[in-house]
Design a protein around this nucleic acid. Structure first.
Length: 466
RNA sequence: GGCCAGGUAGCCAAGCGGCAAGGCAGCGGUCUGCAAAACCGCUAUUCACCGGUUCAAAUCCGGUCCUGGCCUCCA
């Protein structure tokens, strides 16, 4: 049984998709006005875990991640740089995909862009106008919240108590302060679309309603984002979508908590703003970054520090060392029987159950580390057969489908290096340790670490260290 | 002010009524020519604080303090 915490009900609920074996999921993607920062990636890593886990659990995941390529910030950026909106956003769209690959984030099925779905948004707005849920004012179209009584059900805000007074100076255009723009009239700006509802550009929220319904249908299973999206963004999506279709928009809303930097909110003014690229420049390992973002429960605030990043790197390093130790075992060890199969089954079961409980990744990893410890012990006692090793490796490969931080070395050892290792073993036999150590240092510089064991010399690839 | 999270060892982090998982770091030991990795042992009488409920509380209830978020375009 899979349980998720649903923001809508504020409870953990059993997950039941609309269609058996298929999950339709919408994950809020980037606004491409700048490079994404690690706070953004915390959300994307959480979504990646969700995606991978659902596939792991046997679901066919149909996932949409939108690219917001028109909004105030992208427009400002394009004007400032005197380029078209397309040119301006292209850089950041490409960077985003590179970053995703770097963090091993699984690709969504669709990456729709707002600018390519203007007709869909317009027709949705037209429906809302016809139904009386929206109105024109000075060429813009606003959603009339008074026509949607359950407004506030996601954020659980009581609108009788708040928002009685209008704060912004230009709010006079709207009938009510809380009404929000579906379509913004454009007069002097260079970027606009001429449509049946006039010349203008879309409001922020409408793209997600239009695109999610296009690719996933009027009602779908899961919608995710950061907690800061609960209000107003997701609240408004619900209002627009449900007013238009008369149907429930989304069954499960999952939101991840924020990332803090050194216990403080991440902000440009404080200078504690890291992009993924900043960290890579500082020579941090992408797998370590992924591990750190992955292994704090998504609903808990994550305090990002360079110390914890270094710890994460070390852990990833040890996971890789373990993988390689076992791989090496495949080629060398021959004897004995263990009940490794049983242990693998139990570990797998516990790992899966932990994740099925609202993605409890920390508990799931705890199971893996206990397993590793047990296996290491058996190795030290010489109780592992090559058959056992093969089973362990295939188990680790399976786990890695979710955690994706282990990088198995599949390619054979280059001849040049193999012969150096042989040469060194000869030197060691002759107790010529000066030569042996110099070869070891030489290989270390090439990223190959040697480990002498009772069964011979083993090599592993050195992880990036900082 | 309203609403929502969170405060567990040096750091990170599970547990959410029945002897405080796990990771990283540290210390001592085994193995090693030396290493590395691994293994063994040690490292929270206590879970922000104060009360209460209970045979039993880190876990439930009440209050206090601290940190962070949202309250109209920020994941």
């Amino acid at each position: 049984m899979i349980m998720f915490y649903n923001t809508l009900t504020r409870k953990k609920e059993e997950f039941k998709p609309i269609e058996e074996k298929i999950v339709k999921m919408y994950t809020c993607g980037p606004t491409v006005y700048d490079f994404a920062h690690i706070g953004n990636f915390r959300a994307y890593v959480f979504e990646d875990l969700l995606h991978r886990f659902l596939e792991f659990a046997g679901y066919n995941v149909i996932r949409v991640m939108n690219i917001t390529d028109v909004d105030d910030k992208t427009i400002t950026g394009a004007i400032k740089n005197k380029v078209s909106l397309e040119e301006y956003t292209e850089t950041y769209i490409n960077a985003f995909f590179e970053d995703m690959e770097c963090l091993k984030l699984k690709k969504a099925t669709y990456f729709p862009r707002a600018t390519q779905h203007i007709p869909e948004m317009v027709s949705l707005i037209k429906i809302l106008l016809e139904k009386g849920n929206a109105y024109f004012k000075d060429g813009s179209v606003y959603f009339r919240i008074s026509t949607f009584p359950s407004y506030g059900k996601l954020s659980h805000y009581d609108f009788n108590k708040i928002l009685t007074s209008s704060t912004d100076s230009d709010e006079y255009e709207k009938e009510e302060a809380r009404d929000f723009a579906l379509w913004k009239a454009v007069k002097d700006e260079p970027f606009y679309w001429d449509t049946e509802i006039g010349r203008g550009r879309p409001g922020w929220h409408i793209e997600c309603s239009a695109m999610s319904m296009k690719y996933l249908g009027e009602t779908f299973d899961i919608h995710t984002g950061g907690v800061d999206n609960i209000f107003p963004h997701h609240e408004n999506e619900i209002a627009q979508s449900e007013a238009a279709t008369g149907k429930k928009f989304v069954n499960y809303w999952l939101h991840c908590a924020h990332l803090l930097v050194n216990g403080e909110k991440m902000s440009k003014s404080k200078g504690n703003f890291y992009t993924l690229r900043d960290l890579l420049k500082k020579n941090y390992d992408p797998a370590g970054i992924r591990y750190l973002l992955l292994t704090t429960h998504y609903r808990d605030p994550l305090n990002f520090t360079e110390q914890s990043l270094k710890q994460a790197e070390k852990t990833v390093n040890n996971l890789n060392a373990f993988y390689q130790r076992v791989s090496f075992g495949i080629q060398t060890q021959t004897s004995c029987e263990t009940n490794i199969e049983k242990k693998i089954c139990k570990t797998f079961e516990n790992f899966f159950d932990a994740l099925a409980d609202d993605l409890n990744i920390s508990a799931a990893m705890g199971e893996i580390f206990k397993f590793i410890h047990d296996v290491n012990e058996s190795f030290d006692l010489g109780k592992m057969s090559s058959k056992d090793s093969e089973k362990i490796i295939s188990f680790l490969d399976k786990i890695n489908e979710i955690i994706a931080v282990i990088e198995p070395i599949k390619e054979p050892l280059p001849d040049e290096i193999a012969s150096l290792i042989k040469k060194r073993e000869q030197a060691r036999k002759e107790k010529n340790y000066a030569v042996a150590d110099s070869i070891r240092n030489q290989l270390s510089e090439k990223g190959i670490l040697l480990e002498d064991t009772p069964y011979g010399t083993r090599w592993i690839r050195k992880q990036k260290t900082t």
